[in-house]
Write a protein that binds this DNA or RNA. Structure first.
Length: 562
RNA sequence: GUUUCCGUAGUUAAAUGGAUAUAACAGCCCCCUCCUAAGGGGCCGUUGUGGGUUCGAUUCCCGCCGGGAACACCA
């Protein structure tokens, strides 16, 4: 039930539209004031009355019924109290009916949304710098699907460029088959780091790398075979992480995929007289838009990533006919996206407005920035392992009889890593520290999972009690606070999608867990008198369903016991 | 230098322009004869600064201070 719309519909204000009223309706800071409130200040001018008088006037005219039980006017606010039993019935029946679909919607029906995320580089191990894009993208993918969209997950592989020449050069000089087979991607990474170290003293190595890259482009069999092998190794390594994080892709079309799709873009740019020569390079001048030029072709005639990204955008529009195409990429690349979005717009692609750069903050280490080239990175696999180990140690201590400790520890440990990356507004920079990552207290996924385990425990103990359709009675304060919050879940999911902010859902989950724990401590569930007990069990189950749905959207598992 | 993002408690953060700015962490103090103590309760604030718009500003606009990022052939 949409209470805001219901209330707005019944407010007899002349000269102000229902929509405007519905939009103005807010939730008071303290629930003792009311459950909803209409600030009357902005209507003062139109109605030529003081806000207090408007509120007082509307209070007298508002028809109190079984939905809104009380109306009051305080300091220019018109406050509404919702009938508690009605709301409780509404929420509990709806969650009981919808179950794991609670919070979903069909607003995206028939619409496709492309999401470009994770986009790993071949031959580089998965480190914390890749975590944000991966889990943000993964969460948005699930959220949009949940809202009825057809989400297309795209891993735009970084599988093209001179770094592969560098890698082949390093491998030929210092590596061998055995070393890489045993050491996997980390061995490759060490070769890459060594190349940059040695190239500082011997710049001629850079020329060698360029030569190797040229050979790849020309289709040299040996070089191509090496390159394909490196690609295979990388995907194998990265898929382990994706499996842990429950991340999926519908396409792995990366940079090399677009090699033969750039010429038409260049031709079109020429045809539309957008391409100009400058300092030997072919550019699109964006000075009129306050941006530096977008370079399309280098002075040696080769393409750049803007060219590839444009080819990719055009390909995606043709292939998927998206309603939106999101790029989950760090804010460092703000200018790049602004540039090539603008160029596509200048080319007359009306859908350029549907391209969205979902920018997020940077990750750094306590001792400074990360650098793959310098080898100063923290591997994601190491972090996950440490979190899972710690979770397991705690489980062994607290719950020694639990059978599937490894499974539970995995859910808890992985959840902590994912949640840490999703809890704050995505634009915030993150300084990674093991202390923080390994903190399982307070506003964390572990807290939410623990709350779920409590709920499970109560429900399991209630076996034999028939509570599913138990009658609803007047909820107490703690129950009512929890019920109101549960009712808010569908709106929260929608807001998360609209703002591309999975953190809304993460914070919501913590909020629900806090309210449930207050209820759990203050109100006995199983010891409550008959009648009250059944309703509390329904509320417990509804809370569990909602929390599970929230955590699932974020990609976090929910153990029954911990 | 230009553009852009950020600045809230000791720390990390929350807050569609709304009422008394919310949590968590760290610290100190309580609570397991009672549904999982990975929990609950209690103690701590000049929203960087100066203006402006507004009935009302953490939020919008301008200046300043401090920090991050980007700014021509890397992605």
């Amino acid at each position: 039930m949409d209470y805001k719309a219901y209330i707005a519909e019944r407010i007899p204000a002349e000269g102000v539209s229902k929509e405007e009223i519905a939009e103005s309706i807010a939730i008071p800071p303290d629930s003792s004031m009311g459950d909803f409130a209409l600030p009357c200040f902005k209507f003062a001018k139109v109605l030529r009355k003081s806000p207090a008088m408007i509120a007082e006037d509307l209070k007298g005219k508002y028809p109190v019924d079984g939905v809104v039980s009380e109306v009051s006017a305080v300091n220019g606010y018109l406050n509404f109290k919702i009938d508690k039993v009605g709301l409780a019935r509404d929420v509990l029946e709806r969650i009981g009916r919808e179950g794991e679909k609670y919070g979903s919607a069909e607003i995206g029906k028939g619409k496709t949304i492309c999401l470009d995320y994770s986009s790993v580089n071949i031959a580089k191990p998965f480190h914390i710098g890749h975590l944000s894009t991966t889990v943000l993208g993964g969460a948005l993918y699930r959220i949009f699907n949940f809202l009825g969209y057809k989400a297309v997950g795209i891993n735009h592989l970084g599988d093209y460029g001179t770094q592969f020449g560098k890698l082949i050069s390093a491998y030929t000089r210092w590596g061998n088959r055995d070393l890489v087979e045993k050491g996997g991607i980390r061995a490759l990474n060490e070769l890459y780091v060594r190349f940059h170290r040695e190239a500082e003293e011997r710049p001629e190595l850079e020329d060698e790398a360029r030569a190797y890259f040229k050979k790849i482009e020309e289709g040299d069999k040996e070089c191509l075979a090496l390159f394909e092998w490196f690609k295979e190794l990388t995907l194998k390594d990265v898929n382990k992480i994706y499996e842990l994080l429950d991340i999926h892709f519908d396409s792995y079309a990366g940079e090399s995929f677009y090699q033969d799709k750039m010429q038409p873009v260049i031709d079109e740019l020429k045809e539309k007289h957008l391409l100009v020569e400058s300092r030997g390079a072919q550019i699109v001048d964006l000075e009129a838009y306050g941006m530096s030029p977008c370079i399309i072709l280098k002075s040696d005639g080769s393409s750049l990533y803007a060219t590839r990204d444009m080819a990719a955008a055009i390909y995606r529009k043709q292939t998927y006919d998206f309603d939106k195409c999101l790029y989950v990429v760090a804010y460092q690349q703000n200018l790049h996206f602004k540039q090539f979005f603008k160029v596509l717009e200048l080319m007359g692609k009306e859908w350029a407005k549907d391209l969205v750069h979902v920018a997020y903050g940077m990750v750094s280490l306590e001792d400074g920035a990360m650098s793959t080239r310098k080898g100063n990175v923290v591997f994601l696999e190491d972090i996950i392992n440490k979190c899972v180990e710690k979770a397991l140690a705690i489980l062994v201590e607290k719950n020694p009889d639990l059978e599937n400790k490894e499974d539970v520890a995995k859910k808890v440990g992985v959840g902590a890593v994912v949640f840490g990356a999703l809890y704050n507004n995505k634009i915030k920079d993150i300084v990674f520290s093991y202390d923080k990552a390994l903190n399982f207290d307070g506003e964390t996924s572990v807290y939410v999972q623990y709350t779920c385990a409590r709920a499970y425990s109560v429900l399991n103990r209630a076996e034999g009690v028939n509570y599913k359709n138990a009658p609803i009675s007047e909820p107490c304060a703690q129950e009512f606070e929890l019920l109101k919050l549960l009712a808010d879940f569908p709106d929260t999911v929608r807001a998360a999608a609209e703002k591309y902010e999975p953190s809304y859902i993460a914070r919501y989950a913590v909020d629900v867990a806090q309210k449930f724990n207050k209820f759990y401590i203050d109100c006995k569930i199983l010891q409550a008198e008959s009648g009250v007990k059944e309703m509390r069990l329904r509320l417990t189950e509804a809370t569990l369903v909602t929390l599970k749905n929230a955590l699932t959207l974020l990609g976090i598992g929910v153990p029954e016991k911990m």
